[in-house]
Nucleic acid binder design. Sequence first.
RNA 1: CGGGAUGUAGCGCAGCCUGGUAGCGCACCACACUGGGGGUGUGGUGGUCGUCGGUUCAAAUCCGGCCAUCCCGACCA
Length: 421
Amino acid sequence: MLWSNYFIPTLKDTAAEDSQVISNSLMLKSGMIRKTASGIYTWLPLGLRVLNKVENIVREEMNNAGAHEVLMPMVQPKDLWDESERWNKFGPELLRFKDRHDRDFCLGPTHEEVITDLIKNNVKSYRELPLNIYQIQTKFRDEIRPRYGVMRSREFLMKDSYSFHLSEECLEDTYQIMRKAYSNILKRIGLNFKIVKADSGAIGGDRSEEFHVLAENGEDTLAVSDSSDFAVNAELLLENDQDAQSLEGQKSPDGNGLLEITKGIEVGHIFQLGKLYSENMNATVLDDSGTAKNMHMGCYGVGISRIVAASIEQNFDEKGIIWPKSISPFNLSIITIGADKDKNIEASSKKLYQDLSQKGFEVILDDRNDGFGKKIKDNELVGIPLSIVFGKNFSENDEVEIIFRDGKKIISTISKVEEII
RNA sequence: CGGGAUGUAGCGCAGCCUGGUAGCGCACCACACUGGGGGUGUGGUGGUCGUCGGUUCAAAUCCGGCCAUCCCGACCA
């Protein structure tokens, strides 16, 4: 990729009103996203690269966990929501509209109805279970007040899975597999996270846990034991008007150590739904005695677009974004200074760019006709892990400089670059 | 929906109080210089001041309605 041909509209400043949340401000400044309307964003090429990387890691881990990918419609008919009795329960967060024939539809905020309908129409025997189906798709929830950029947007990209089982034990097995898969996802991306017990909320069901990326700006308050794995969304421990901070230092409910209060961003949520939907929507299979049984269900969500923002909330400095290597939009950049004066810089940088690209590195060649200052600032803002600089040192000594995002610098020659990076 | 705030050039802002020919910085275009931390110079492009109405000889400025956006709250994967 040549920077000069790429679409990366970086900004020096964002409006005061858009700068309240660091991830939003940095995503705007680095040219990852632009706001189209409140809570609705366009992903630009750079942002989309990151989004796709998160998406692919999630997809790989889902496939590894034995889940199968589908793509369900974003537009859903009212009849399915009547079956689950959620058309009336869901409230104005469900964006509804009519088609030209005056039939009612909504934009999908979640897909329990569609998947349950699909499975009940196509799975008749317990022999076909368990099933674990997922999709990666845009959801729409008409939030009362969208905020914090893509962290709480109305339109967002989510991976949602639904599992179907004859027995509760089988559901528990899959739940544990998904729990492990979610941990793998966040570990692979390289984020610091906690799994916490949660309130299952409006989706309903029996048991649920949330995956929180730890960050100071997190919306949720977590109570975590200082000496065991115990962690819970602080809401669940609060009584009446109690303040979350008052939990700090109290004895952990599991008996191990004291509670610490920390902030998290909820990026994943796994539920055991039980038979809630299968009963409402009459989804059954025949068991080994030929009896119709309502299926046990689980559902598992990951906020893909939210993970992108959460990663920034957890990893940034005064210069800009710091990407974990796993989701950085590029592995490295090559920066030229004065290439139009020194044709050797132009030719050599291009050759290195081609060589590294051919070897599978994702490289952006910053060939813009600008000075060092502007280029390195942009590279730091955008969060590229390392930059290889062709400049005066190359003209005079055939040396390039490798500048890492944390500020460390190494002088090298082209032949040694590959082993360093 | 309650409370608070904002809306002026592509972006960031000043001007509004005290009405009188719309400004600054950045960006952008041209040319030259420069080329290791957002460089310099010269010359340019770009705005029905969110919108509708009112007051006035005259409105970005005063008054009212509406819209949009942001922050706090209730709500929420």
